[in-house]
């Protein structure tokens, strides 16, 4: 019984595996190979050098933008997740309406650039935010740092990636039955208590996943930093993109992309470790078969 079933399983998984290989593994391997090549006058030459990695690691610019990207990423992903959780909770346990979820997702259809420009309008020196602050008498002169700053980058990225994060949160909460929340309430837990004692531990993997995916998307975004970041809001994503677009140094860009990849993985384990240490993530026992 066992053997045919598992071979059937691998057969069914084949399209997904093939897809991953063609669209993820192969391009990644090509990029990985590139990262050991060299670039000379806009041409890339096959080689096997570590200089792309070493130069990046020793470049203060690389570290400045990477730390900046990590900071923006962490702050943005945290805020996004904190905003997405109550929305996801509402969608999954209170309204149970698909329509609202679709409406939220539809905002993703509006152009990315339009939304960036919208924020430029809102945050600029003659923008809505400054106008309100001036009229309310909170400031005397328009505040310049709203635009072209980490703040501008963060708020725009939150706006752009929130629907995505909500989708991830909804999918991870959907696996936790409403009954469990009700049972916790019935046994004396407040709504917040039920979240921390029941939902968080059971959805931990999904929520960490949502956080990390949002982090990766945010930290890798290079359009928003470019348009709103000014000099203080530059990120690794932008640096890497420039290696490909402007400098034409693909090997260096590839190496930096892999460094960023390593940083993300390290962060993933750090976040999980933090979750374990604070007791929010509990290791689940694997399911065992039982008799009556």
């Amino acid at each position: 019984m066992k053997a045919p079933r598992s071979s059937m399983g691998s057969l069914l998984a084949a399209p997904a595996v093939l897809y991953m290989v063609v669209f993820f593994v192969v391009p990644s391997l090509i990029l990985f190979v590139y990262s050991f090549w060299t670039a000379a006058s806009y041409k890339i030459v096959p080689d096997f050098v570590f200089s792309n990695y070493l130069n990046s690691l020793m470049s203060p610019l690389f570290w400045t933008v990477t730390i900046n990207a990590i900071l923006i990423g962490l702050v943005t992903a945290s805020i996004t997740l904190v905003l997405a959780i109550p929305v996801g909770y509402y969608l999954v346990y209170v309204s149970r309406s698909q329509v609202i979820l679709y409406l939220i997702l539809i905002t993703w259809f509006s152009s990315y650039l339009v939304r960036i420009y919208a924020w430029r309008t809102l945050l600029g020196t003659s923008g809505v935010l400054n106008t309100i602050l001036l009229q309310a008498g909170i400031v005397d002169t328009p505040v310049g740092v709203f635009l072209f700053s980490r703040f501008a980058v963060a708020i725009t990225l939150i706006h752009i990636y929130l629907p995505f994060c909500i989708l991830l949160v909804v999918s991870s909460l959907s696996e936790i039955k409403k009954d469990l929340v009700d049972a916790a309430r019935d046994l004396g837990a407040s709504p917040l208590g039920a979240f921390f004692r029941i939902i968080a531990p059971n959805a931990a993997n999904g929520l960490v996943g949502a956080f990390m995916l949002t982090f990766v998307m945010v930290a890798g975004d290079y359009v928003t930093p470019q348009m709103l970041g000014g000099s203080s809001g530059q990120t690794t994503g932008l640096l890497i993109a420039d290696q490909f677009r402007k400098t034409g140094n693909w090997p260096l860009g590839a190496a930096q992309a892999f460094l960023m990849f390593l940083v993300s993985i390290a962060l993933y384990f750090a976040v999980k470790g933090l979750g374990r240490a604070t007791g929010l993530i509990v290791k689940r026992r694997p399911a065992k078969k039982v008799g009556a």
Binding site: K177, D179, L180, D182, A184, R185, D186, P201, N202, R284
Partner: peptide, 20 residues
Amino acid sequence: QPPERRPVNMVFQRYALFPH
């Protein structure tokens, strides 16, 4: 009174035991 403040307890149809 919300459920957590009522002196009653419930056994759910599908038990709703906490898996973790």
